[in-house]
Amino acid sequence: MKSQCPMNSLLGVMSCKKHLILLLTCYVVVEGKQFRSDYTFHSAIDGWLKFHYVPGTWQDAHQRCYMEGAVLASPVNAAMQYALRLEINNSSKDCAGIYVGVHSIFSKGYFYSSEGVPLSKMPLQWLPGEPNNAGNNEDCIVYLDGSVADVNCSEVHPFVCFKKAAENMSVMPCGTIDKEYKFVADTGSCYKFHKNQVIWSDAFKVCSAEGGYLAIINSKEEAAIMKDLFNKQYPNGPRSYITLIGFHDWHKDGVWRTVHGQTLKEAGYAVWEIGQPDNAGYQEYCGAMFSNAKLDDFWCDKVARFLCEKDPNSLQD
């Protein structure tokens, strides 16, 4: 795509899109406090947007938005297009377009948004020479200022996530709308067990997107709390249940560190299960715990449940 940011002036937009005039006169943007402080609330779309500076593939973008509790934004109408314009202009990042939630991955040539809106129903125009389905491998859409182009989904582009406001949507004591996070007064932290099983690096990614990190045990007292949380989450679970938490031997030198850079001793808890770490198969370099909260070394490429920890204020100013 040859178009570059910054976008056209607002005056130009109003002259070529007269149906926006009334909308723009009453458009209000305020900081979102009912979702996450890294998202901006836009009243005209009754929701929040977040511009992601670090580009990714379309799948990366889709997954990141999902993990943050949002969706990959799509320019389904004039109001959303104007909100996207604001987000891009405020990003202070030159760009040739952003990924949006429109794709034809499920059926070649049939482009739909994440919400099921067909591309043909959106007030958009194709850039010159588009769509060209180069190499018969362009199933994703890049958007810029009312125009789109089909691209290979493995290209990397910045993107914008969208969270629609909903009834009974409120921030919980853990500073998130996610009701699965539980606040523990004794530690001042919130915890969430994820039942879906992923590899350690993906668990790290999920916790980060949720505003937290893979849980770190800082004391025997916190270990007892972890054990209690585990038993409440899995009352009939076997003792051998493995839960990924936030430490690793990244340099493979036998020095285990938390995801915050401290050694286990510096962090305050280095109680291994009997016989651990054993580095089975010479491949166990990621951290986990048993149901008794004693530590275990685990394969970085094998899946397990995981535990996230977050500060109650991590997503709120």
Rank of each mutant, 00 (worst) to 15 (best):
L229F: 12
G237Q: 04
R257K: 13
H103L: 02
P312S: 05
Q4W: 05
C190R: 13
V303P: 11
N89E: 11
C26P: 04
R257G: 04
G188C: 11
D253G: 14
Y112I: 07
N292G: 04
S107F: 09
S120F: 08
N231T: 14
A288F: 02
Y82A: 07
G101Y: 05
G275M: 01
N137W: 13
M122Q: 15
N132D: 15
F193Q: 07
V71K: 15
Y285M: 02
N90T: 03
A165Q: 14
Y66D: 11
Q63C: 08
I225N: 07
D278P: 03
F230E: 09
L144C: 14
Q81C: 02
V71A: 14
V28P: 01
K265I: 15
S107M: 13
Q81S: 02
M226P: 01
N132T: 11
N218G: 03
L22V: 10
S147E: 14
K192H: 09
K195T: 12
Y241V: 00
P123C: 00
H157I: 12
F111Q: 04
L295K: 00
A185V: 03
V271T: 13
N236C: 02
S43C: 11
F159Q: 05
A280M: 07
I216K: 11
K220Y: 10
S91N: 01
D145P: 04
A61E: 08
M80G: 02
G47K: 11
N137Y: 12
Q81V: 02
S154R: 15
N137H: 13
V28T: 12
S291C: 00
